[in-house]
Computed example of a mutant assay.
Amino acid sequence: MEQYLSRNISCENCKHAYSTFKIKSRYIRPLTHDSDFCSTYQSLETNPLLYYVSVCPYCGYAVSDEFNPKLTKEAHFAIQTKIQKHWNYKNYGQKRSVETAINSYKLGIYSGIIKKETPIVMAGLYLRLAWIYRTIEHSNTQEQRFLKLAVEQFELSYTLGDYEEKGMSEIKLLYLIGDLNCRLNLERQATRYFQMVIGHKHKEKEQRLVEKARDRWYEIRKSTKLKVSS
């Protein structure tokens, strides 16, 4: 149990204090990184994704660190009537299985929708849940489902500009939208976003991502030519 850190949280909805596990940073050692920034780890026990969402055991309100901590009166009332009213005490604050983690994400997504969290925050939840499904190799359908939801929110975030509040650069956002579209076999949309990265006015600042976008663009072109010739 030494890889776990217990964090104390005060629920903004019901005002109860509770504790929840996180993985200590020195135990987070990624082995590989996918093109959409998903990391793989030596074991599920040291995968920080499982603990990204914190769930209040008293009322069921679930949040990530990216959530705006403040609740409007309308959001507070909606959470009380749509979540807390139907909630039975359950503790998500201990060691989590993949199934428990998935449930915590779904609670976080539902809480975010009710609270009307920003698109960039919702996109992060959808994308990370897709990554968890990726660790379960037989769950490709669910992975695709949440990748689609993620890319929709990322595109909305690009339109609204809320990604800047979370410290994400425009180039990284455009690259990620392109990559997710590629994973969804939406090659035309992927090409469009990769081209936006390649031609971006600040491309010198993030040359690694620009090169990755160029490589993915060439892959799509090559694949398209092969399909046409066959």
Rank of each mutant, 00 (worst) to 15 (best):
L5P: 09
S6P: 13
S10H: 13
C11V: 10
N13E: 15
C14Y: 00
K22A: 15
K24F: 11
I28G: 04
L31A: 07
T32A: 15
S35D: 14
F37Q: 06
S39D: 09
E45K: 15
T46R: 05
P48G: 07
P48N: 03
L49W: 04
L50Q: 03
L50Y: 07
Y51D: 07
Y51G: 03
V55I: 05
C56F: 05
C56Y: 06
Y58S: 14
D65L: 10
D65W: 05
E66M: 14
N68V: 15
K70V: 14
T72C: 05
E74I: 07
H76E: 13
I79C: 03
Q80T: 12
I83D: 01
K85W: 08
W87G: 02
W87E: 01
W87A: 01
N88E: 14
K90W: 09
N91L: 08
Y92G: 00
K95E: 05
S97M: 02
S97Y: 08
S97N: 10
Y110R: 13
I113R: 04
I113D: 15
V121F: 10
M122H: 00
G124F: 05
G124D: 03
Y126M: 07
L127Y: 12
A130T: 03
W131P: 00
T135K: 09
I136M: 13
E137R: 05
S139W: 02
R145T: 10
F146T: 01
K148C: 08
K148E: 11
Q153F: 11
Q153G: 01
F154P: 01
L156C: 12
D162T: 06
D162W: 06
E164T: 14
K166L: 14
G167L: 02
M168V: 10
E170H: 10
K172S: 09
L174T: 04
L176H: 04
G178R: 07
R183T: 04
L184E: 00
N185I: 08
Y193R: 15
F194E: 10
M196I: 08
M196N: 15
H200V: 06
H202G: 13
E204F: 10
R208A: 12
L209V: 06
A213W: 06
Y218K: 13
I220P: 02
T224S: 14
S230Y: 08
